[in-house]
Design a binder for these strands. Structure first.
Lengths: 219, 219
DNA sequence: TGTCCCATGTAACTCGTTACATGATTGT
DNA sequence: ACAATCATGTAACGAGTTACATGGGACA
């Protein structure tokens, strides 16, 4: 339901074509919810069939066409209903930590490289999220202005504040990931200094390190 | 691949039945990777078919049977290969922040309830993860001891350290989520004090608050 | 006899990823 | 002519959720 929610949320500010939405979700601007176009186009069709959207076929040049999607009253109803529903957090399923729990099977070089990639990824995104927060405060986000124009004055503060709150969460998450990766890099340095040599078979019996694994999602 | 990795990682310490694994991943002990039994049993069969596992059919009482799964050399190879592969972090897709970005459509009561649930969830799990870290340090985790027994002495420190590192990440993530929810609760208090009244229709034109949405995954 | 735990599955569905594909328009 | 960008899809697969289903063993 999240893609559906995200699409309707965008369209509630302004009608758009599938392509416009694709650039929102598929490109670098997918700040909170990424989705590829192959996901978006079919979902738009489904929502249209269910009456949450209506489409207007527009000409492009001589032969081309494009479809401009507009949210409907049932679509708005869906949005309100969805926002009003309290959902349980989902059970943990964390691929980064899962991999890290078994890092002793990798070489120090691989572990460093993985952590470096992690660090870079979240460093880049942290900047993006923090810049976006600035943009929100300054009302320099087009869709935000669009919304504010249609909302009563006394709601403006809440509208901006919740968006800032959400992006603040993204930025904090990034901060945590960056710190985690740094600790990991220090750990590798320390372990290597103390003689850990990664996946070099150094085991006793078979020579192929059967039991040299790690503890799993265990309690 | 993550479920496969997680299952093989557990089985690399000790042979287990599907039921044993289910309790690992389906129950409260699923600390890093949750999976229901309906996911686990078919995956075990597939891995067996692919030669990553071998199963031993054991009797249970008069008529019952159970299958004890044991990792094979190709299974170990898969684990090593997987750990040795550096993977790009995936693009963001954060349902909590997505919902929060549009909290102005909900009533203050709903927002509070959602944040309270969030807070409680991560408070509970944070405790679990931190307790698990203690258990790891004290070598009071059965599967960890199993592993250490089969690993050369000089790897023991790394094995424990990476597990602690992973669970520390889980705990830090929880800390961040708790803090985020607290900030959110304060925000609701403040906004309500200043006259935000949630989804009460207070709009100008149609009376059904068409444009009173929020900014999306935008750049 | 009943209840709880052990033990194992199938089926339908939703959600998301990757690969494959096509064609028009705009500007150089 | 060519490249970049606009614009839209299908198909196959992989991953995860929910519902449905079955039966044995241990113990009171």
């Amino acid at each position: 339901m999240s893609l559906r929610f995200a699409l309707l949320a965008v369209l509630s500010a302004e009608p758009m074509t599938g392509y416009d939405l694709m650039r929102f979700f598929d490109d670098s601007v997918a700040f909170i919810w990424h989705a590829p176009h192959t996901n978006i186009y079919p979902e738009l069709r489904r929502m249209e069939a269910e009456g949450l959207l209506e489409a207007e076929e527009l000409p492009r040049g001589q032969r081309g066409t494009k479809r401009l999607y507009r949210i409907t009253e049932p679509g708005l109803e869906f949005l309100r209903e969805q926002t009003q529903r309290v959902t349980e957090p989902t059970r943990e399923r964390d691929p980064y930590r899962l991999q890290a729990a078994y890092f002793e099977w990798a070489t120090p070089a691989t572990v460093r490289e993985q952590l470096r990639v992690h660090l870079e990824h979240f460093t880049r995104w942290r900047t993006a999220w923090e810049e976006h927060i600035e943009q929100l405060h300054a009302h320099r986000v087009r869709l935000l202005r669009e919304r504010l124009d249609h909302a009563p004055e006394e709601e403006h503060e809440a509208i901006v504040a919740f968006k800032v709150f959400a992006y603040r969460g993204m930025a904090e998450r990034a901060r945590m990931e960056i710190e985690w990766a740094r600790v990991g890099l220090e750990l590798v340095d320390r372990l290597e200094g103390e003689g850990w040599h990664g996946s070099q078979p150094a085991a006793g019996a078979e020579g192929s390190r059967v039991g040299a694994g790690a503890d799993p999602p265990e309690g």
